[in-house]
Structures are given as structure tokens and as C-alpha cells.
Amino acid sequence: MNLLDSVPNEWPSGVYVAQFCAEEKPRERATDRAGEDALFIVRRGNDRPGARILCQVNVATWLAYHIWHNRSLYHGRSDDGQYWEELRNSKASIHRPGLGLCYPNGNILRPYPPKSGQTFAFIDWLEREAISVDFCSGLDISNGHANLSDYSALVTIGHDEYWTGKQLDAVRAFRDSGGATIFLGGNLACLSGPRDF
């Protein structure tokens, strides 16, 4: 078992999947069972040159839609299998297994693709086209951990709906100062309002 106290500064920025399995060799793909894999994002390290393009991963939207203990920010599921808006959560936590990778309840009534599927497809395309991109979450932009002034362009993909006010202000300031903003998706950039991330 390899333990990692912190991400080494020389690791390239990217979206990674940590696998928790008993086998010596990893499966090389995420499982659909919650808690066996963990998705994490590595930002560009200090004092290391990076790409000129930053990709914002839409973690806040994954939080809103992620069903845990039969609840998401949209609905809850009753014991008899019915969905009720009245049972939804009012707050989402990042400390839940399977975020972005799977839906942890085995009794979901309809199939859902993993939220990270669009992100992984985009990463595959970037690699085929040899386009260098750094990654961060929208929450990294919100709390100032990702410095947009280090980049010439910001791209977001897929359904990137939930943003904080600070995140939106930072992206607008970046755009207004000459940075390019590229949105490859729809239903995006809605403020999270009273819901807390």
C-alpha cells in the first residue's frame, strides 16, 4: 500500500482517480460502487510552469446532484421508491463517497451516467490533440487557490450549473481583463443562492 501525505509539487495538474482495492494491480477504471474510488484534482504546483489554459471542473454541480442517503439537493427518495422534492437536502457536503464517479444507492430507479464522464471524455480529447491544460475545481477559483491571472483562457465543460458569487466575480474580472472564457456546455453559471456548498 502506498500512502501519500501530500501531492508532490512535480505532479502534473490533472484529474486523478485513486483506487481502493485488495488486488496488487489497480483495475485501471473506476468502479460503479461508492467508496472504492476517489476522484481528486491536482492544481499546478508552485514554481512549476504550467499550461496557458485552465479547465474548471464542475464539482459544485456534482455536489448538488449527488445522491447520498437517498437525498440530493433536488429530491429525496422515500422507502417505497418515490421521489419527493420535500425530502431533498438543503445542504451538500464534499465529504461523501463516489462524488462525480457513481451514484452510491444501489436502488436508483433509472440509470445515471457518472457526472465525471464528460470531464474524462474531454481529457481524452485534449490528450489526443496534444493540448496542454491545467485543472482546478470551481471551488478552487472561489476560494482563491487557483490564480486566473496565470492563464490566458478558462474553459468549463458540460453541466457547470452551480457557482459561488466569488467564483463568478473572479471569472468576470478575468474576462474583463482580457482573458478568454470558453463554455463547452449549457445550463451553467447559476449562483448557488441560499444553498450552501
Rank of each mutant, 00 (worst) to 15 (best):
N105Q: 13
T61H: 03
F120C: 00
N107V: 06
S72Y: 01
L63V: 01
I108Y: 15
C136G: 06
I123Q: 00
F40V: 09
E24I: 02
W68H: 15
R52G: 08
V57D: 05
Q56T: 03
E10S: 09
G45M: 09
E28H: 09
Q82W: 09
N46C: 07
H69S: 13
I94H: 07
G35Y: 01
L126H: 01
D79W: 10
C55I: 04
R128T: 14
A51L: 08
R96H: 07
W84E: 10
R96V: 15
Q82C: 04
G106T: 15
D5Q: 05
R48A: 10
F40E: 03
R27P: 00
P104C: 07
G81A: 05
P104L: 02
L101W: 03
N46M: 11
F122E: 00
W11Y: 12
D79I: 11
R27L: 06
Q82T: 11
P97A: 03
R110N: 10
P12L: 09
A30S: 11
F122K: 00
I41A: 06
G45Y: 05
R33A: 08
A51R: 05
S72I: 12
D134G: 04
N89P: 00
L63N: 07
L126F: 05
L39P: 02
K25S: 07
C102Q: 08
I131A: 02
